[in-house]
Design a protein around this nucleic acid. Sequence first.
DNA 1: ATTATAGTTGAACAAGTATTCAACTGTCAA
DNA 2: TTGACAGTTGAATACTTGTTCAACTATAAT
Lengths: 119, 119
Amino acid sequence: MSSRNNECEIIHAGIVEIVRAKMYAEPVLAEVSALFKIMGDSTRCNILCALSQHEMCVCALAVLLNMTKSAISHQLRILREANLVRSRREGKNVFYSLDDDHVRDIFGKAAEHVIEKKK
Amino acid sequence: MSSRNNECEIIHAGIVEIVRAKMYAEPVLAEVSALFKIMGDSTRCNILCALSQHEMCVCALAVLLNMTKSAISHQLRILREANLVRSRREGKNVFYSLDDDHVRDIFGKAAEHVIEKKK
DNA sequence: ATTATAGTTGAACAAGTATTCAACTGTCAA
DNA sequence: TTGACAGTTGAATACTTGTTCAACTATAAT
């Protein structure tokens, strides 16, 4: 009863279709992975973590993270274009803050995971 | 590295110290960003999403995602080393499943964020 | 107007990475 | 033992990306 087709494909075809039907739609998955990709850089993670405490200007973030304003600004642009942070000008300063409470939630869950895993 | 007598540093020094005191410890932040980095690839995101529905063997994942077994296996190794998935051999097949419910949570929050943002 | 500080931007470089390819191991059946 | 299928692995390639550097804009004060 052998076949030239892939055995595994035949045997597990049911599972493949069941899982496919329950998965998030492709556009959603693409955006989810894009979101994680943006959060998956240590500089941006630090920025998000800082902004989840208080709004800050570029210069203050640069001091906090011991990096150049340029490097911070580049990363802030990425976060801004992803609608994760929002900016507000006040005189010479541009203050950034979190644009969405979901970010705080996602961040919290991840930190919880990491901390609990350490034990 | 901005400058030593930076006006902003002086003006916002208070905020910097307050935020620094409230931020997650550096090792935690490093692991959090590492976690997001791992989840921030569309192939791995698809794998995690699939495994959050049902355990699957490499071959089935390859069929589901229309990729080579080699490519899937490489990504599974990364997920395994991060303790996000676990493997179990059964005859010729190796079945993978989520190693942690946190992943499902984090994933869910992110999807919620994306879906709500679309409106 | 000039000067100083805050912030942005584009190009370039260095470092990282996902997939492919080919060769390999492990398991099972004939 | 041989052949077939499931899965893994290392090297190579092509692509992505974070930071630096230098030049730029914007705002405010002298």
